[in-house]
Computed example of a mutant assay.
Amino acid sequence: MEHKATPEHTYAYGVDVGGTGIKGGVVDLFTGQLVGERYRIDTPRPATPQAVAEVVAAVLNELRQRPGMPADAPVGVALPSIVHHGVARSASNIDPTFIGTDLVALLSQQIGREVTVLNDADAAGLAEAEFGAARGVAGSVLMLTLGTGIGSALLFNGELVPNFELGHLEFNGQIAERGASASARQREGLSWKEYAQRLNGYLEHVQFLFSPELIILGGGVSKSPQKFVPLLELETKIAVAEHANNAGILGAALHGSRQNS
């Protein structure tokens, strides 16, 4: 199975909204590489929809003013929210007033052109499917981002099934991300071996429910894969995400390109 970038576009703009920073970049859709440096502005406090929209617009304005950058390239934005038909249905590390906000309308109006929006874990999954560890993998692939919580993306033959919130599964009597996220390891002072055992239990549960061909681990904890990945024992193949810092930007740009093709 081979995925190819949309031939109508060579470049697209991607913006990744996080709890501490809003990062953007110009993405070469054929190589999966950033064109020039990514640009970052601190996430505003409070991170209300209008305040975030203004920063997203400022990030894009800087990127579009760079020499040789096409003004009409597609724009995609990734946010830490369930995004259903363009509307935010949750808010993680951003202001609760995001819930119910028409993100597509808000951002498109602020930027002055059509924008596509998706969940940040979904964006990371798209990036790995097109340019990373899931490239060419047939069947079901689960992407899990282990950080403050657990973000997740499900891909089937490279196509995204949006808003697959596996961090909110109940596991061992609590929400899974409460006990198996990277922040849980730090909060409870777990050793890497202890954390690997706990994470392994959660992954076994997910493996049983969905029978994926591959599980990709990303997020902050993936910066130290050698400390816990070798301790995991699963039937499913495990891979480490290849685009940790730029995955949201890459996936957002790719989504923008596909939706505008």
Rank of each mutant, 00 (worst) to 15 (best):
E62T: 14
S222P: 15
A253L: 00
N119A: 07
L142P: 12
A47C: 08
A241T: 10
S222E: 02
N245H: 12
P230M: 00
N260D: 08
F228G: 05
L214R: 04
V206Q: 09
S108M: 00
R64A: 14
S257N: 05
P80W: 10
R45L: 02
S261H: 12
A51L: 01
G125R: 01
S140P: 13
A153M: 06
I82P: 08
G220P: 10
A129Y: 09
Y202Q: 07
K23R: 14
E194K: 01
L160T: 11
N172D: 15
F208H: 13
R38P: 14
V221Y: 05
P7C: 09
G32V: 04
T101P: 09
L169H: 15
A253D: 11
A129R: 04
V55W: 07
N61P: 04
F98R: 01
E2A: 10
T236K: 04
G32D: 03
S261A: 14
K237I: 01
A239S: 15
P80V: 06
T48E: 10
E242W: 00
I94W: 07
V115L: 00
P230H: 01
R64K: 14
V117P: 12
M69E: 08
Q33K: 13
D42L: 02
S81A: 14
G21D: 05
V104R: 14
T6K: 02
H255D: 08
A244D: 06
G132R: 03
G112C: 00
A57D: 15
V59T: 08
G24W: 08
A129Q: 07
P80Q: 07
T145G: 12
D120W: 06
I249T: 11
H243G: 08
N119F: 04
G218H: 06
L203N: 12
P70C: 03
